Measured scan of single mutants.
Amino acid sequence: MSGNGNAAATAEENSPKMRVIRVGTRKSQLARIQTDSVVATLKASYPGLQFEIIAMSTTGDKILDTALSKIGEKSLFTKELEHALEKNEVDLVVHSLKDLPTVLPPGFTIGAICKRENPHDAVVFHPKFVGKTLETLPEKSVVGTSSLRRAAQLQRKFPHLEFRSIRGNLNTRLRKLDEQQEFSAIILATAGLQRMGWHNRVGQILHPEECMYAVGQGALGVEVRAKDQDILDLVGVLHDPETLLRCIAERAFLRHLEGGCSVPVAVHTAMKDGQLYLTGGVWSLDGSDSIQETMQATIHVPAQHEDGPEDDPQLVGITARNIPRGPQLAAQNLGISLANLLLSKGAKNILDVARQLNDAH
C-alpha cells in the first residue's frame, strides 16, 4: 500500500501541473516587456503551470559599433537563445518575429505568432524639431536608422535628408537623439515604442507609400524545439490566425527572394473581405531603383483552434497545428507568387547589386 502511495506522490510531482516552463529572452527592456506579455497570456491559459524567465545577451546586443547589415552573420539576435533551447536550458524563446530568419536551424520551429501590433515605422524627432515631419525637416538634416530597408525607401522619398546608421537598443538610440546634436530624427518601429509606453515620442507614423515595413514587423514569434510536442501544444494558444497568415505570406515572399538583413526588402499586408493583399518591394541601397507589386488571394481566416493538420510540417519556419492547413498554404503560395513576379521584373539584379555594395563598404 505504502509503495503505491509513493508512486502516486511521484506521479503528482512529475505531472504537468508541477512543471516549471523556462522562457528565454534577450536582456533589453523591450525584450523583457514583450516576454512578460507572452508569459502573462500563458499564465492565464495555464494557471497550474509556473513560468521562469531567463534573460541573456546576444551577438546583436554586444556589437554596437557596426551596422547590422555589415556584421555579416545571420541570427544576430537569436543564436545564443537557440543555443540555450538546444541544450534544454529553456523550453521556449520569445523573439520579435522580424529577427527570426525565414529558414531556422534544424530542430527549431516557430510554435506561435502572437497578435500583431502596429507594424509601421515611426519617426521620433529631436526636441528642437518636435512638430515637424520628415518632409518639413531642414535641408541636409541627419536621420538615424539601423535599417537598409528604411534608408533606401526614405532616401527616395525625401532626397533633402541624409540617413546615417544608429545602433543600440531603444533606450540607447533615444538617448543619442536627445543628448547629442548629430541626429534631427530617428526611425523606429511603432510597436516597440508603444510597448515601452513611449507613445508621446511618436512624431509621425510612416504610411506604406512612404515606407513599407519589415517582414514580420510588429509581431512576436515564440520559438521552440520542433519535436517538443508538449510545448508546441502549450504555445499553440498564442497563435493569432490573421497575423499568422499575413506573416506566412510575408516570410514566403522574403524567403523566395532570398532577402535578408543586408538587402532592402519591404512588405505591406492587409486582410479585407476574405482577401489577403500582399505588397512587396525591393530597392537599391540608395533607393534610386525599385520594383513594387501587389497581389491578392482569397483566404478564409479560420477561428482559433479549428482542428489543424496533425502532421505539422513547417511552413517558412512556422508550425501551427491548430490552424487549418489550406489557408496557410494559400498564404505561402501568395508570397511565392509575388516573389516570382518581382524576380521576373529584375528584382534579383537589384538585390545582387545591393548585396555587393553593402559587402564592399
Rank of each mutant, 00 (worst) to 15 (best):
L174Y: 09
E139F: 14
N118H: 12
P241K: 01
G259P: 01
L234Q: 08
E258V: 15
Q356T: 03
T294Y: 01
V93D: 07
W283I: 05
Q204K: 07
L100V: 08
I113E: 01
A40I: 08
A122Y: 03
P127G: 07
Q304N: 15
T136D: 12
E139T: 08
A270S: 07
Y277R: 12
V38F: 05
I113R: 01
E117S: 06
V143Y: 06
T102K: 01
K157H: 13
P208L: 10
L238M: 15
N169T: 08
P119M: 01
L134I: 09
R149L: 01
E306S: 11
M196E: 05
L193Q: 07
P241A: 06
A249Q: 01
E258P: 06
L188E: 01
I350K: 01
F125V: 09
Y277A: 13
A297T: 12
E209C: 14
T136F: 08
I318W: 01
P309M: 01
L30A: 01
Q292N: 11
D312S: 01
L97A: 10
T25V: 06
L104Q: 08
P208N: 01
D91A: 08
K128F: 07
D286P: 08
P159Y: 06
I186E: 15
G144T: 09
V143R: 01
K176W: 10
I54R: 09
H268C: 07
K27V: 14
D240P: 04
R22D: 05
N358I: 15
L276P: 01
Q204E: 09
A214D: 06
I336C: 01
I166E: 01
H83C: 13
T319R: 01
E86P: 01
T35Y: 01
S75T: 15
D312N: 15
N333Y: 05
D178Y: 13
L193F: 06
A112S: 09
Q180D: 08
G168Q: 01
A189G: 09
F158V: 05
I21Y: 09
S141V: 09
L343H: 14
P119I: 01
L232W: 08
A31V: 01
H126V: 07
I186A: 11
M271L: 12
V38R: 03
G144I: 01
D359N: 09
T133W: 09
C247Y: 10
G192T: 04
I323D: 07
S37K: 13
G236A: 14
S57N: 05
Q155C: 13
A84T: 11
I248P: 01
T58H: 01
L100H: 01
R22V: 14
R195Y: 10
E306G: 07
Q217K: 04
H300A: 01
K227S: 09
N340I: 15
L188R: 01
H239W: 01
R325V: 03
E52A: 14
P208K: 04
I53V: 11
N169C: 05
S147L: 01
A219R: 03
T25H: 11
L92K: 03
R164D: 12
A303E: 10
E209N: 01
T269L: 03
Q180A: 14
G317Q: 01
V265Q: 01
L257M: 12
D65R: 12
S337P: 03
D233Y: 07
I231E: 01
D352A: 12
L244A: 04
D359L: 06
F129P: 01
R175Y: 06
P138R: 09
V237A: 01
K132A: 10
A297C: 15
N340F: 07
G308W: 11
I113S: 03
T78I: 14
A297D: 11
L177K: 01
V123Y: 01
R251L: 01
K62R: 08
D233H: 13
K70A: 09
L238E: 03
L244C: 12
S57P: 06
R150F: 01
R225V: 07
E139I: 14
I110C: 09
Y46K: 10
S262F: 01
V316I: 10
H268G: 01
L329W: 05
V123K: 01
V282D: 04
R175L: 09
A44D: 09
P101K: 01
A219L: 01
R32E: 07
L343D: 14
G48V: 11
Q29S: 12
N118R: 11
D359K: 04
K87P: 01
L278S: 07
A339M: 01
R32C: 11
E82M: 01
L245Y: 14
H160N: 12
C114L: 10
V142C: 13
D352W: 09
E310S: 05
A249W: 01
S288I: 14
A189R: 01
L276D: 03
V222E: 05
E117I: 15
G259N: 01
I113D: 04
H199N: 14
H160G: 11
G24I: 04
Q275T: 01
L220I: 01
A67P: 04
I53F: 13
G216D: 01
Q34W: 01
L220R: 03
E250C: 01
A266P: 01
E52G: 12
K140F: 10
L315D: 04
A252T: 14
R156T: 12
G107C: 12
K140I: 07
T133V: 08
E242Y: 01
G259R: 06
A67S: 01
T145A: 14
V124K: 05
E210Q: 05
E89G: 08
Q332K: 15
V90N: 04
L341E: 11
I186W: 01
R246T: 08
K74R: 05
F125G: 01
Q314L: 13
V39Q: 08
V123T: 14
Q292V: 07
Q296M: 01
P302Q: 05
A40G: 12
Y213K: 01
H268Y: 14
S165V: 09
V265H: 01
A112P: 05
H268A: 14
Q314G: 01
I54L: 10
S96C: 07
D307I: 01
E162T: 05
T279S: 10
S28M: 01
T172Q: 01
L232D: 05
E293R: 07
A84Q: 06
V94I: 07
V130R: 14
N200Q: 01
Q204V: 13
I323Y: 10
V237M: 08
E210D: 09
W283Q: 11
V282M: 08
K345L: 11
V142W: 09
G287A: 05
A226E: 15
L137G: 03
T66V: 14
R19S: 08
L170F: 11
A226T: 09
R195P: 04
D36Y: 10
G197K: 03
M56G: 06
F158G: 08
A40T: 12
R175A: 11
S28R: 01
N88F: 12
Q314E: 14
Q296N: 12
S45A: 12
A40M: 14
M196I: 13
P208D: 04
I350W: 15
N333D: 01
L357Y: 11
S262A: 15
Q194E: 06
G192S: 12
L100M: 09
A354S: 04
H207Q: 12
D240K: 11
T78W: 04
P106F: 13
D233R: 08
G197D: 03
G280A: 14
G131Y: 11
R251Y: 01
P106C: 14
Y46A: 08
G131A: 12
L338G: 01
V215K: 01
H199T: 06
A31E: 01
C261M: 01
L100P: 05
A226R: 07
P302T: 14
S284A: 15
I231A: 15
R246G: 10
A270L: 01
L188P: 05
V316G: 08
Q229V: 06
L357H: 15
T133K: 09
R19I: 12
K79M: 09
T269M: 05
E82V: 06
E82T: 08
Q180K: 13
P127A: 09
Q229E: 13
D61W: 06
D273N: 15
A189H: 01
T243R: 05
T190W: 14
A339T: 13
I54T: 09
P105T: 11
E80C: 11
T133G: 06
G192F: 01
P101Q: 08
D91Y: 05
L329C: 01
A152C: 10
L238S: 04
R116L: 04
D65H: 10
P159R: 10
N169Y: 09
V130S: 04
T298H: 08
V124A: 12
M212A: 01
T133L: 09
K70R: 08
G236Y: 01
G281A: 12
E117L: 10
L154C: 12
Q155H: 12
V39E: 07
A185G: 15
Q332Y: 13
E179G: 08
A214I: 04
G308K: 01
T243N: 10
L234P: 01
M196H: 12
V39K: 07
I299N: 08
P106V: 14
T35R: 01
V235S: 01
N88A: 10
N322T: 07
V237C: 04
M271G: 13
K157Y: 12
K115L: 12
L329E: 01
V38C: 09
S337R: 13
F253A: 03
V282T: 07
